[in-house]
Amino acid sequence: MTVMQQTSGSGGRSGNLYEVLDLILDKGLVIDVFARVSLVGIELLTVDVRIVVASVDTYLRFAEACNRLDLSAGGGAGLPDLVNGATESGARSKTKGALAGAADTVKDTLGRDSEEERPTAKSGRRSGRKEAE
């Protein structure tokens, strides 16, 4: 199976499965005379939840993330950075609500019966996902 996977810079086969979920569940032949097993929840997971809809939480998170950015390339945390640093954990929990929460739900549905195959390969890809791990 490793032959089949050429994901740049990431590992396991389950990362692969997670990354192609939208293909397995939303593409492929659908033949009218065949039924589809009940996928209550799962289609919603792929097409709705994985498409993260902008929400109040994401707006607030973006605002706070911008506030934390030091746009002068020189770096050096000024007073605003320190002040905003104190609110960081609060912002993170909001992140979890909007983005990472969705990722968690997908993982739940994928089942915890094989923990070693949890889709952690892309964990560092984006802050939202990282915090889900």
């Binding site: 199976m1 089949m4 499965l17 192609v20 979920l21 397995i24 569940l25 939303d26 593409k27 492929g28 032949l29 659908v30 033949i31 005379v33 065949f34 039924a35 589809r36 097993v37 996928l39 994928l110």
Partner: peptide, 26 residues
Amino acid sequence: LSAHQEVLVDLARRDAVLPMRFGAVA
């Protein structure tokens, strides 16, 4: 999901295959 994918990957290695969307039951 993995079994569905693996069967298709294996078939695709041998010959052309038309994958069904997961969950097709006749």
